[in-house]
């Protein structure tokens, strides 16, 4: 079965073709990051305007790269939520209308399920059950995953998401938007000089809190005016140490509490080299396994949506009286999902 995946929930338009026999055949992506950078953040209306220009040309590109035609597609999976409602509607209206014209089924995919399952797109995929750390600009969650649609939330952020903390701290250091990757880059030249708190490290639960770190950085920035490049790098270094240390220790606690020995990491912050270094070392010490998606699938993409859709083909087959009515779910709790 050949599944077309459509992702347009935020600032990336992603299209992919996944074959249940032959795996991922192609994927095409357009990131709007540069467009939003001038505005200091994602402007929802501009995001929607860009998606509607990209979605069809990217679909043509994905088909061409896979050497397939529209008639080869058996089902269309698209992100129904959560995300920006206007942005979601672009992918949704295109996907449903395309499916209507081809008279094939659609599969509504939860964006975070896409991220959660993304490491399964790689060779030697991890087997269920596993602990998943989902860290991005919008989420910082630890979950126990027993199978498709079987997700138990173990811990969540009480305030900012980890990626959000990276971006906000980068802004304090004058690194622009989105500053997360720039901050990680700057941290490479930093040295251990400052000491920032490790929020909720000993809270006894698996929750996170990152907004206080940002305040501590602000205090440091104010104490060291005017900021020289060395100080900036040293702050960036310590900030990254604090976030990645908390994430790593909570992941290890989650493995211990669940008794599982398998960790997967997904989302934009999952691309962070320091986090990967710490998680690799910690899991190795405890004889656990850790898996990541390839770097390009840490951020939003169509491949994970096509894949999650393919894993839910059963849902689609039970949905035979389809009338192509569609709607989006800007807010949608992952725990509402069920096994196919």
């Amino acid at each position: 079965m050949l599944v077309l995946g459509v992702e347009s929930s935020c600032d990336e338009t992603g299209i992919a073709l996944y074959d249940t026999d032959h795996g991922l055949l192609s994927h095409a992506l357009h990131s709007q990051v540069e467009m939003h950078a001038e505005y200091g953040g994602v402007v929802p209306e501009l995001a929607s305007r860009d998606h509607i220009r990209r979605v069809l040309p990217l679909t043509e590109l994905a088909l061409k790269d896979a050497n397939k035609t529209l008639q080869d597609i058996d089902a269309i999976a698209y992100t129904q939520g959560p995300g920006l409602s206007g942005a979601l509607l672009v992918g949704t209206s295109f996907a449903e209308s395309l499916a209507f014209s081809l008279q094939i089924p659609t599969i509504n995919v939860h964006h975070l399920e896409g991220h959660l399952l993304a490491p399964l797109l790689e060779d030697n995929p991890p087997a269920f059950p596993f602990v998943a750390l989902l860290v991005s600009g919008g989420h910082s969650q630890l979950m126990r995953v027993d199978g498709i649609g079987q997700y138990e939330l173990l811990g969540d952020t009480l305030d900012d998401a980890a990626g959000e903390a990276f971006d906000k701290t980068a802004k304090l250091l004058g690194l622009g938007y989105p500053g997360g990757p720039a901050l990680s880059n700057l941290a490479k030249t930093g040295k251990p000089r400052f000491k920032l708190p490790r929020p909720l490290l000993n809270s006894g639960d698996l929750n996170f809190s990152f907004s206080g770190l940002k305040t501590s950085v602000l205090t440091l920035v104010n104490q060291h005016q005017p900021l020289d490049d060395e100080t900036k790098a040293d702050i960036a270094y310590e900030f990254q140490e604090a976030v990645t240390e908390v994430l790593t220790i909570k992941c290890m606690s989650a493995l211990r509490e669940t008794g599982l020995d398998n960790l997967i990491v997904s989302g934009g912050v999952g691309a962070n080299a320091k986090l990967r270094e710490k998680l690799n070392a910690a899991t190795k010490r405890k004889l656990c396994k850790v898996s990541y998606p390839r770097l390009e699938f840490c951020t939003d993409n169509g491949a994970m949506i096509a894949f999650a859709g393919a894993m839910r083909l059963k849902d689609m087959q039970s949905n035979t009286d389809k009338n192509y009515s569609f709607s989006v779910k800007p807010r949608w709790n992952l725990s509402e999902l069920q096994a196919p």
Binding site: S48, V55, L89, S93, F94, S101
Partner: peptide, 19 residues
């Protein structure tokens, strides 16, 4: 309506491309 005209454009693209 921005959202409204994008639904129409999305439907036109999906139907036009598919058929």
């Amino acid at each position: 309506s921005f959202t409204g005209v994008r639904i129409a454009a999305g439907v036109a693209q999906g139907l036009g491309f598919g058929a």
